[in-house]
Amino acid sequence: MLEEIIIAGFGGQGVMSMGQLIAYAGMLEGKSVSWLPSYGPEQRGGTANCAIVVSDELVGSPLVTRPTTAIVLNNPSFDKFEPRVRPGGLLLLNSSLVVRASGRKDIKVIEINATDLANDLGNSRVTNMILLGAFLEYRKIVSIESIVESLKKVLSPDKHHLIDVNKQALKKGASLVNIARI
């Protein structure tokens, strides 16, 4: 198994932490992982992205130019990364903010209005977790349980009360992919 993921959106959408959670969960499951942030002169509200590699073998390049999965949270990131998804790969869109549609027939496209759904859950900041839940349901590279386990380690104890809403968001995202399959 070799999964090369790019997650991209605005700074503040939780793009970086999503990637770190995948890497952390992969590590907990004994896989080889790497996480590489874009770190230009970025600013709040600007675009940000990170590359995650999860593999059964030692990770070679931590840099991902042709991802097997791109998770895209805003329009500028769609323009940049939609053409780069490898044939047969996955493009997961936050359709609450991405108004573009992909014309590509050689990849799987999943659209989820994650920001709206996060607002329904009462916390717009779990948009990223809804997408993460959907991604992991479709491409089972790590388990949701490992993500929750990672959350406990990544979040400082005073933020642990947020684990519940994050869990709900992960489950919500996963359930949407199930429905889409039926």
């Binding site: 590590m27 996480w35 942030p37 931590p62």
Partner: peptide
């Protein structure tokens, strides 16, 4: 290089 400094690995 900057990549090695910024990336995360176990």
């Amino acid at each position: 290089d900057g990549m090695l400094g910024q990336m995360m690995e176990p």
